[in-house]
Nucleic acid binder design. Structure first.
Length: 805
DNA sequence: AGCACGCCGACT
DNA sequence: GTCGGCGTGCTC
């Protein structure tokens, strides 16, 4: 009997966001599985899709087409991920194909090629013009720019001298290497060596190498030529003589090849608090029960050791473990620790991997060859089939929320997967998100507290510098008190970390005659001066232009630059402390691969006295010799129009404070602020997370924000401001009509940055507790957006938004 | 997304 | 007349 496949096609639009049915031809019957990646005809084209179901009847009223081929030998999606992709797409109001693509490594994305082919009726001259340089009668069409050529091709297509063929190319390439094996019995090589001529040096080199190192075979060709110092060409000669045989073998790219594994493989002795945490987590692990823990432990309390020992427990129960860390914390040091403990059973997924490396790691996971996966946000989709434990370190980090579609939160996906597998989920943080901490309060999560540092080291002394009262002898960004602290620390041959949350040199250019401010032509925000490259840059869209010498408006030369970024502070510090060495770390100095690590290594080796950087320096760095941490602008985050700005400021200050004083040197923290009485700053000074939690909860309740209310953010955008505004008001009235009066509907308001990349943005924020009709209403709104495609209006939905703009 | 079809203004 | 611009609708 004929079989049919339900296929999600690789076209991310509203009206293709459903399954399409194809008949499975007999010869593919055994190959097509649920989760298979397949090639299908779609209109005139051939495209890629994913089989989500196989059934014996078709419900399609038209004529079903045949599946063309199955792309991979094993299906990339298992039934868990198929179900998750469906539910996630619905929950996030996004396309299922988009969710599937974020679950899988990049190389599984389709790569389409179009070729022009001659037909039988082609004339000799057309053939000469189009195909004489092509080896296979195929002209690749994808990047033809020559207008005359395009016109010629169109003409030949019209009179049917040529036709277009479509191809789905598989980008996933297995990496192969040449392996060399011995072709003769071991005892024979000595005799062969005696028969070689005296001047046959390559032959002698190879034979001696074989005789001395027989245990090294089979060996990779690259390794053999290096170790025996032979040219590759000689190996084919040796192969002809029958001395060696060569074959291609598939290998995995090893992203950790040059990682020195530390010897520290044994579990560390636990403090009482750690022991209690480990035992609490082990209990449901032992009984295969699902449970969520919130591990609230101050910086330096040893959360990592708790993670490692509970992972060991999961492995002992023949279960697998998945650990998420923020990208920035996924450093070689951290990976090394996990590797030391669990060896080759570990796979690592981070953004530093090439597409090929990532694919190899993913395949090891999908083949269930590993038991532990460590990775950043998207690793939450790692296809482990026997999950027992999921850990999210620094669970409050906003990097776990993806800001592009699909706008998922890894923590929410983790909950779904833990539930699916009846697994244990551990959320760890020194400063838990209010949402998680509140759930622990209501016993939805089990709270585990760790309040002590194993080394008995006191938390650093934190002093606030009131910038409204401070003295400044040089300029207004660095107070005398902070400079004195830096000088004193350097004099004692100790190191300083300085945090400044603003990159670039100066963040706006003002004409003092006419008041003109230089803005990005695509976005509505001022351009930032970057002195090293002598460019004005837009930090939103990346637009760059040269630094003006005169005002573009009134031609005055009285131009001034305001606002200090990392580049300017670096320059100032160098003036004030000419004999100190400074390392700057921000997006601009770490863009290259490994740039990040280079700076950290240099600082760790005490090649510099001061590390100056944006918030990327706040996380997870441990430098024994750092005794002073300075925060140059503690308030900069507070002024953002974001209800989480206090929480973010508190987290950042707490974290950066944790960088001061390790080992036997006491640390000190100096925070410059214009709001010394602000509760986030006061409570961070006193290392008082619980106090902050109480205070901030009261404010959230009052402001009707999470965790008391849920949020949904609707963004309406258009190139035409009028259209965006009108659509936004229509949406608001629909919401008003459909939702209960318990729901708060704010807006529409133009975004803080009204125009971005030549589009205008209007936002509507919905706050609610229980709204049974909300889901259906939002779906209607999305469908209408599709209707109003001619109005050139787009509508984006963000469930549980983290970025407000 | 692409790709085709169909309708209207502009030019060989 | 016909070329080519773009709006509209469809893909199992």
């Amino acid at each position: 009997m004929a079989k049919f496949a339900d296929v999600i096609v690789d076209v991310a639009t509203q009206d293709t966001n459903k399954t399409f049915q194809y008949q499975i031809p007999n010869q593919l019957a055994d190959l097509v599985k649920r989760g298979s990646r397949v090639e299908v005809p779609f209109g005139r084209r051939k495209i890629q899709g994913f089989v989500v179901n196989i059934k014996s009847t078709s419900s399609f009223s038209g004529k079903t087409k045949n599946l063309l081929s199955v792309i991979d030998e094993f299906p990339p999606l298992n039934s868990e991920l198929l179900q998750l992709s469906d539910e996630l797409a619905k929950h996030l109001f996004t396309y299922r194909i988009s969710v599937i693509q974020t679950m899988l490594p990049n190389v599984l994305k389709a790569n389409y090629q179009r070729f022009l082919q001659p037909t039988e009726t082609i004339s000799e001259s057309t053939y000469q013009q189009l195909f004489q340089n092509q080896k296979t009668n195929q002209l690749p069409l994808n990047q033809i720019k020559d207008y005359d050529l395009i016109k010629l091709i169109q003409k030949t297509l019209q009179n049917k001298e040529t036709k277009i063929v479509y191809q789905v190319k598989n980008k996933a390439k297995d990496k192969v290497a040449t392996q060399v094996e011995l072709g003769l019995g071991l005892s024979i090589y000595q005799k062969v060596l005696e028969t070689t001529k005296a001047n046959a040096t390559n032959q002698q080199k190879l034979l001696k190498f074989i005789i001395q190192n027989p245990q090294k075979f089979p060996i990779f060709q690259t390794q053999l030529t290096k170790e025996a110092q032979l040219p590759v060409s000689f190996l084919s000669e040796a192969e002809k003589k029958g001395w060696l045989t060569r074959s291609k073998v598939q290998i995995n790219r090893d992203p950790l090849a040059n990682l020195t594994v530390s010897k520290d493989t044994n579990p560390k002795k636990l403090t009482t608090e750690q022991q209690e945490a480990v035992e609490a987590i082990n209990q449901p692990l032992d009984n295969s029960q699902k449970r969520v823990f919130l591990l609230e432990g101050i910086t330096g309390s040893g959360k990592t050791e708790v993670y490692l020992q509970t992972i060991a427990k999961a492995l002992g129960k023949k279960k697998q473990a998945l650990m998420l860390v923020p990208e920035i914390a996924l450093t070689p040091q951290m990976v090394r620790q996990v590797f030391a403990r669990f060896g080759s059973k570990v796979a690592v997924l981070h953004s530093g991997l090439s597409d090929g490396e990532r694919y190899d790691e993913w395949r090891r996971i999908n083949g269930q060859e590993v038991d532990v996966v460590v990775g950043a946000r998207s690793a939450i989709f790692a296809p482990l089939q026997n999950l027992g434990l999921i850990i999210i370190d620094e669970e409050h980090e906003s990097t776990y929320k993806q800001e592009e579609n699909p706008k998922y939160h890894a923590r929410e996906v983790a909950k779904w997967r833990a539930n699916y597998h009846q697994a244990v989920l551990v959320l760890g943080s020194a400063t838990p998100s209010l949402e998680s901490r509140a759930r622990a309060q209501k016993n939805r999560y089990q709270l585990l507290l760790m309040t002590k540092r194993p080394t008995q080291l006191a938390l650093p002394q934190v002093d606030l510098i009131d910038m409204t009262q401070a003295h400044f002898s040089s300029q207004l960004d660095l107070s005398d008190e902070l400079i004195a602290g830096i000088k004193q620390t350097i004099a004692q041959k100790q190191q300083v970390i300085l945090l400044l949350n603003r990159r670039g040199y100066a963040n706006f250019m003002l004409c003092r005659d006419c008041g003109y401010v230089l803005k990005c032509p695509h976005c509505d925000i001022s351009l930032t001066l970057h002195k090293d490259t002598q460019q004005m840059k837009c930090h939103y869209c990346g637009y760059e232009t040269s630094v003006p010498k005169q005002c573009p408006e009134c031609q005055s030369t009285r131009i001034k630059f305001f606002g200090s970024g990392t580049q300017k502070i670096e320059e100032l510090l160098q003036q004030i402390l000419p004999e100190s060495t400074i390392l700057r770390m921000d997006v601009d100095t770490t863009r290259r691969k490994g740039g990040h690590q280079k700076i950290l290594d240099a600082f760790g080796n005490h090649e510099a006295d001061i590390l100056l950087g944006t918030q990327m320096i706040a996380k997870g760095l441990d430098f024994e010799n750092v005794t002073l941490v300075g925060v140059i602008n503690a308030d900069s985050g507070l002024s953002f129009p974001d209800f989480r700005s206090s929480e973010k400021t508190f987290d950042l200050l707490t974290q950066v404070s944790g960088r001061a004083g390790r080992a036997n040197l006491p640390g000190k923290v100096l925070i410059q602020t214009y709001n010394p009485d602000h509760y986030a700053i006061q409570l961070a000074k006193n290392h008082n997370y619980e106090g902050f939690y109480q205070k901030e909860m009261a404010i959230r309740r009052q402001g009707q924000y999470p965790p008391y209310f849920y949020l949904n953010l609707i963004t309406v955008t258009s190139k035409l401001e009028q259209k965006a505004a009108m659509a936004a008001f229509k949406i608001k009235s629909l919401l008003k009509k459909e939702l209960s009066d318990q729901a708060l509907i704010l807006g529409p308001t133009p975004q803080a940055v009204t125009r971005l990349k030549d589009h205008y943005y209007y936002q509507i924020l919905i706050k609610y507790k229980v709204e049974p009709k909300l889901y259906a209403t939002l779906n209607t709104i999305k469908a209408q957006a599709f209707d109003s495609k001619k109005d050139k209006v787009n509508i984006y939905l963000d469930v549980d938004p983290y970025q407000f703009n």
